[in-house]
Design a protein around this nucleic acid. Structure first.
Lengths: 163, 163
DNA sequence: CTTGACCTTACCATGATGGGAAGCCCCATC
DNA sequence: GATGGGGCTTCCCATCATGGTAAGGTCAAG
């Protein structure tokens, strides 16, 4: 029975979640404390691996660890109404769409600027001219830091590594 | 002459860069040390404010501080070839486009899942079913952490605050 | 001369991840 | 049965750009 369990390194290999992150998820309470051998080694059974794959998949979809905690709770509660899950997913979609739109704005502005810059040996450069333009609104007022809106953050982190 | 200079708080108000960040940009070398009054207060003249607005605008376009350092150097070098600036901008565009595409993928997948979830009181939930699916590729190999690709990070940070 | 608004530096937190050190454990090979 | 190498443990540090807070100095208006 316990022959069916694996160490953290093997679990990492099988689920795509690094050993480092598995420990961190446990430390921060996303996952319950793993079973330990007498020597203190963590051991994972098939159900644990299943959970890890669930987490991994959710991360790939850009959910924050906080959101995943909610999804996990719902997953474990077999009687939950599917509406709760759908609501979390839709928040995530809205957040993704909002950030996509912002980045689209940036990209389009930059493309417009880059098009108008000949990009040769001469110093004239509309891109720098734009950046240096004086008639800029000074400080767009920031809205409240709202509790949501942190989802999908991790995806960006991973973006930076994985490219 | 020095009547034309302002303190850091006023500079922050006028440029939209927080006092905190102005100090940080100085500490990390993005900006040269500011002039100081006898009491140690930083003072900024119009040229400094212009530079700060330049930085602000570049941040708004998603450039990383590292990239902005490059842009600033080119901006100060009046004989620079515009090609250098264009290259930086295009790297940024590519990076933005890549990340937009990734988020689009996430959003589309989630939309598809959300559509198939009735979102009522019943427990059946295709979203959770997908997250829990077993036949997932375990570990997509991560590519090298390449030096570029960090641009636009700040924009996400600001995303989280400003909404 | 007091008060309050501003400035200074210094430290801590964020979120999800990786890197590394110091030390223990397990297994296989000699 | 010792030894070596690889895997495991915990703990600390770095990232990137930003905000918060605390302890203390400064300035200007009342």
């Amino acid at each position: 029975m316990s022959a069916e369990t694996v160490t953290i390194g093997e679990a990492a290999r099988r689920t795509g979640v690094s050993a480092k992150m598995i420990r961190w998820y446990e430390a921060t309470g996303l996952l319950p404390p793993a079973a330990r051998s007498e020597a203190g080694y963590r051991h994972y059974d098939e159900a644990d691996l299943h959970t890890l794959r669930f987490v991994r998949r959710a991360r790939d979809l850009g959910f924050s660890v906080e959101a995943i905690a909610g999804l996990l709770a719902l997953w474990r509660d077999r009687a939950r109404p599917s509406a709760g899950v759908k609501a979390i997913a839709q928040e995530q979609i809205v957040d993704l769409r909002r950030r996509i739109a912002e980045m689209e704005d940036m990209a389009r502005t930059l493309e417009r600027l880059a098009e108008s810059c000949c990009g040769d040996d001469r110093p004239e450069c509309p891109i720098l001219d734009d950046l240096a333009a004086k008639d800029r609104a000074p400080a767009p007022p920031r809205r409240s830091p709202a509790s949501a809106a942190l989802a999908t953050h991790a995806a960006h982190q991973r973006d930076k590594r994985g490219r």
